[in-house]
Amino acid sequence: MSRYDQMSALGLLAPMLVVLLVVAVFPVLYSFWVSLFDLKLTRPHRVPFVWLANYATVFQDPLFWASVWRTTWFTVISVAAIMVIALLAALLLNEEFRGRRFLSAVLLVPWAIPYVANGLMWKWIYDSGYGALNGLLFQLDFIDKYMVWLGDSEKTLALIANAFVWKEVPLATILILVGLKSIPGDLYSAARVDGANVWRRFVHITLPALRPSFMLVLIYEAMMAIRHFDLFFILTEGGPAEASHVLAWEVYVETFRKLSFGTGSALAYIMAILTFLLAFALIRALGKKL
């Protein structure tokens, strides 16, 4: 490539590079810079540079570790449920049967609902006074009086995970279905000739072939679950007590309620690094088997 071509390419790329620098690189670096200050918006005249003290404060806070544990629990439960349900749904939709197209369309409905609307819908469903869940269970005689759902700290996180899974399953199903469609039919034909039954075909052909799809779903959904905020905001605001106080909620409270941008930025960085490390570990662990 001639020097002229190189300069032309750089010239053509320059506008986008500038945009990326301004809207992506600068905010990321600036937020790290902010995390080194004890910056509270409500105390604008005193903003001392504190080096990494905000990070130390975060790591010394028991609430932070409790929220890490809750986030881990929420992520593991949610992602496991999404993977299993999405795999079953994808296997079903991969078969030819009457109404398959209709079922596929119905399956996409939760995906099409915005997160905030999804949260409000589940708030109605879970409401202890007039919620649909209580109404249904009561009419079916499973309960003899209305139950407390989100207000019960033992159930809160599982109920939020349920709402999250409901929303995320369609996308995971599509991703796995794409994987299923890409498996050559010859492999199944050959296995049948060799006398492999349905279970053996599933274990030895389908599952290995789906590894790339599984990895994609696993990484994407894990990152979504770790960073998820909307449902926690709408359904419980981190409560009752600290029952749903997860990392994303901690970042919100620190930054937008306490207006402590220094600690909030430090927390956001910690969360981003944890997410990155998780994704990296998953790729390292599963990528080798691709």
């Binding site: 409401d127 407390v148 207000g151 409560g239 007590a241």
Partner: peptide, 11 residues
């Protein structure tokens, strides 16, 4: 109600 912890002023 034990659900009071999830009941805001409007509800």
């Amino acid at each position: 109600s034990p659900a009071c912890v999830e009941i805001g002023e409007l509800n």
